[in-house]
Structure formats: C-alpha cells, structure tokens
Nucleic acid binder design. Structure first.
Lengths: 104, 104
DNA sequence: TTGACAGGCAACCATTTGGTTGCCTATTAT
DNA sequence: ATAATAGGCAACCAAATGGTTGCCTGTCAA
C-alpha cells in the first residue's frame, strides 16, 4: 500500500499512468515521446510503477509493452479513501462548531 | 492536487490523519503520544498536511487544535481514482488477451 | 511572579529521489 | 553481415525529505 502511495506521489508518474489509461500497451519509447526527460528517467519511473504493481510489462521481441493495472488504485479508493468519506459531514460540522465557539 | 498526493505519500502522515479521524481536534502533544518521533518531526508533518489543506488548525490559548479536513481526500477519489475505475475490466481483459497471444 | 507547559524557529545531518551521461546487449531490418 | 533500433546497467549529481538537537516565546497555574 505504501508503495502505491509513494508511486502516485510524483506528477510525472501520474502522467505516465494517464498516458497508459489513454492508450494501453505502449512501448518505452512511445511513452517517452514529448516528455522533457531522458529515456532512462522514464525507465526509472516505470520501474517504480511496476514495483507498486500499477503497471505490468510484457516483453515482445526487443520491445517492452506497458499495461496499466488499475487494481491498486481501486484498492486505495476502497480501503483508504472510503474510510474518510464516512464522517465527512460530521467532521466539518464539528470543525464549524469549534470555530464558532472560539470567542467564548 | 500534487500537494495532497505528496502529503499522503508518507506513512507517518497517513497515520496522523488516521488518529485525527479517530479523534478530531487534538493538540500537537496529544498527537505525539506513543510515536517514535520527536515533537518537531510531528510538527513538520502537520505543516505539510496543513499546506495540503488536509488539516486545519485553530489556536486556543497555548494549545493548537488540529482538525481533519476530508475534502481533498474526497476530491482525489472523485477526480482521480474514479477516472481509473471506468475501463478497469476492459483494461484487464485487454491485458489477458495480449498475454494469451504471446506465443503466436 | 515565577516555574512549568505548549508550541515555534533554525541549524544541521544522512538518506532518498529524480534526474543526468556514457556505454553495453539484444533484436530487427537492409 | 551489418547497421539501426529498443532497451538495460551503472556511476554520478543536486536537491528534497525526514529526522535530529538546542534554544526561544507565549500562556497558564501555584
């Protein structure tokens, strides 16, 4: 879980996921196109995404295809974000209540 | 948005949010209890959470109360995670299809 | 009014991170 | 066979990160 949060913390990596979301199964060079970064930098990001299990790769000849795995993102949503959904309103109204009694 | 992802990337900070979720409106010292970290380290984490707007503070005398603001977390869920929900099944079946034709 | 308590500020430190360059290997196309 | 293409590996670098210690300020209670 920590790996996933860490992987998602970087904007370049999130944009790589976006690119794969737009078009799945891209090669490394395809993913590099138009990016202000060397191929090696992109490789490093992709390794981090792989280790977080957010991207799965598949070697085809001399090409390496990258596939998005949305499961960990879904799990973050289910296991983590949903926990804070409940009680959102109560938390806010509690805060409001506290702020309003500030000058007592 | 980047601030929020960055803030959530650290396990200590996520556990601080958990603590506030369990009991809202805690003081700094309260939040330090039982943590293997100095008060100053916790302060730094709380500053990052404040800057990401995940925590709101309110000074009461010599105490500083910390309140959880779940809105940014909710936004991550709505604006980011949901984007990858759609197409989850299609992405997986696409991957499966590709993997299966590997030995053609 | 004076000591204890809650918290803030700043300097410093080691490690991690995000990036680079240079070179090497494997596969494909001519 | 050979050149071009796709990617991998390793060393190196600057800046950011997560933590520490030491000391200072403001508020409350005896």
């Amino acid at each position: 879980m920590d790996d996933v949060f860490k992987a998602l913390a970087d904007a370049s990596r999130r944009s790589l996921l976006d690119r794969l979301h737009a078009k799945n199964g891209q090669t490394l060079n395809e993913l590099c196109e138009g990016l202000a970064m060397t191929r090696q930098a992109v490789t490093k990001h992709l390794v981090i995404l792989e280790e977080a299990n957010l991207v799965t790769t598949y070697r085809h000849g001399r090409e390496k295809l990258h596939y998005l795995n949305p499961v960990p993102i879904h799990q973050i949503g289910e296991r983590w974000i949903k926990k804070f959904e409940r009680g959102k309103l109560t938390a806010l109204s509690e805060l409001k209540r506290q702020l309003e009694k500030r000058d007592e």
